[in-house]
């Protein structure tokens, strides 16, 4: 029964995506919407991305210093490992999990409220493809903004690690800098960006799907938001596993 329901839901999701990925009726209106969404979903997420990344970067640095310190271990390993963790997993996958909570619930509640207050019906009555009008700008906007958020996250995390080393004295900035620069692989940053594109698509499309199919009232909108965040998180982790396997081989 659960399997049949899941297949049915996936089918509904695909049908919605078929409607979403359509040529916008008015490019002018589409770009205006997209800019608005870039601000709402992307620019408004920058503070939380910077804040969380800064502290996580610092915490990773402290944990590594405390747990792998050994006379046999070069001092630069802490900086090196912090950088790798931030670039390979934290700034793409974990940051997108956090964004799934912030952006995903925001999208679901916005579209869900539009559904229950008949605003989506109003769009349909006007002859507007409501799915494409509402969802496509969100998908393109977050996919445009996500590389910037990933880069900001990497920078803030590295900054956090550097600050903790400098201001608490647990590491010298020089040792950290050597670690940050040691064996740097540009491809890893690209992997992070590529993964984040997929996660941005998952966050926006899945959250929109849950919002778009809401029936009932505010209680159902709340439930849909919760379900959207749970589904996005699970899908991000699943996609992370597959993409990491594909990209890092």
């Amino acid at each position: 029964m659960i399997l049949i329901d899941s297949i049915k839901t996936f089918g509904e999701y695909l049908l919605l995506m078929k409607r979403v990925i359509a040529k916008p009726e008015r490019w002018r209106v589409f770009f205006r919407q997209m800019l608005h969404e870039m601000y709402q979903l992307g620019v408004n997420s920058i503070p939380i991305v910077l804040l969380i990344s800064f502290f996580i970067g610092a915490v990773i640095c402290i944990q590594l210093k405390l747990n792998i310190e050994s006379p046999w271990m070069p001092k630069m390993v802490v900086g090196y490992s912090t950088r790798e963790i931030l670039i390979l997993e934290f700034s793409s996958s974990i940051m997108c999990l956090i964004l799934a909570g912030k952006v995903g619930s925001n999208i679901t509640s916005e579209i869900g409220t539009m559904r229950v207050t008949q605003q989506i019906d109003a769009l349909e009555i006007m002859g507007v493809n409501s799915a494409s009008f509402l969802i496509l700008p969100k998908i393109t906007a977050l996919m445009t903004m996500i590389p910037i958020l990933v880069i900001f996250s990497i920078a803030a995390g590295t900054g956090g690690a550097f600050s903790i080393g400098k201001f608490t004295g647990i590491m010298t900035p020089e040792d950290l800098m050597i670690g940050f620069q040691y064996e740097f692989q540009q491809w890893y940053v690209w992997c992070s960006v590529i993964k984040s594109f997929a996660f941005a698509f998952i966050i926006t499309s899945v959250s929109s799907f849950y919002g778009y199919r809401v029936t009932g009232g505010s209680l159902e909108v709340g439930k849909a938001s919760t379900n959207a965040v749970v589904s996005c998180s699970a899908l991000i982790l699943f996609a992370d596993m597959i993409l990491t396997q594909l990209l890092m081989q």
Partner: peptide
Amino acid sequence: FQSAALFD
């Protein structure tokens, strides 16, 4: 519409 359905 019953609820006016203006875009918020």
